[in-house]
Amino acid sequence: MKIEKPGIKLLVLVPLIIVTIAIIIFIPMKEALVFQYQNTGKMLAYIPFSKEDHFKIKYTHSIHLSDVVESYVITEDEEIKQYELMYEDFAIGMPENASDGEIFEQKNGKYYIKNMNRIFPYFDLRTGKVRANHTVLFREKEYPLSHFIEPGTWVRIKAEKINLIQQLRGVNILEQS
């Protein structure tokens, strides 16, 4: 009859538990739309995201004071694709027509550029201080960025996988409303 020492099992089990915990904490697993402070990589806020999700950014144009809505989807390569633009006024800073392959429509006093295929690894945005009121539209709800990010802040918006530590440090926008 062989007698096993309990120390050998612990010697194998403890490192295995430590490695498992490290994987859970540090390996990026959750897909998210991330709002980073400038180009530092420091996450300010995020929205848990799946490949089927779309999001929009709505803001008030600084010159003609009407709403502009930019529509986006995350690609398979974790890039951001703008597929539509809606605005109410032709004026400074707004397109007068669609580019090649895009569709221009006027409907109910609003202008749409559809079928856009503008792909970005990320895009930068300075959140409005005065009247822009940048708002994320996600799953039919509105999330004003000023509730999570100080107005006037330069943010980098990108899609990436985040780990548990990043989730705990950043603000989950969906849980704050």
Rank of each mutant, 00 (worst) to 15 (best):
E79P: 03
E78S: 14
I80L: 15
H134D: 15
L13V: 12
M86S: 07
I173Y: 03
L85D: 03
I27V: 15
K110N: 07
L168S: 11
N163A: 14
S71M: 07
F26C: 06
G101A: 03
A45V: 03
I21S: 00
P48E: 00
M86R: 14
G128K: 00
I25T: 10
G128S: 11
K110Q: 13
V73C: 08
Y83K: 00
L85C: 02
L13A: 15
F26R: 11
E4Q: 10
K114Y: 03
R126F: 07
L125V: 12
K161M: 06
P15T: 10
G109E: 08
D53L: 04
S62A: 10
E79D: 11
T127Q: 08
L174G: 00
Y112K: 02
H54Y: 12
H134F: 12
Y59A: 08
E52C: 02
Y46W: 00
Y72P: 05
I23E: 04
T60Y: 06
K30C: 01
N133A: 13
E31N: 14
E78C: 04
I23S: 08
T127D: 08
V130W: 04
L168R: 08
D89L: 02
R118A: 11
E140A: 10
Q82D: 04
K51S: 13
T127A: 07
N108T: 02
K161L: 09
L85Y: 03
S71I: 04
Y72G: 08
E140D: 15
L13G: 09
V68E: 02
D100C: 02
A91M: 07
I92H: 10
V73I: 12
I57N: 06
S50Y: 00
L11V: 08
I173H: 02
E96P: 00
K158F: 05
K141N: 13
E102M: 01
Y122H: 12
L164Q: 06
L10Q: 13
H147L: 15
L164I: 14
P48V: 01
P15A: 06
K161D: 08
F90S: 05
Y59T: 09
D53K: 01
T75L: 05
F120N: 12
K110G: 03
L137W: 05
E88G: 08
K51R: 09
I74S: 04
Y143R: 07
R169D: 11
I21Q: 01
E140H: 10
A132G: 10
P95G: 03
S146T: 10
K42M: 07
F123E: 04
E150W: 05
F138P: 01
V69K: 14
E76Y: 02
F138V: 03
E4K: 12
K114R: 07
E78R: 13
K81Q: 15
E150S: 13
I23R: 06
G93M: 09
K9L: 15
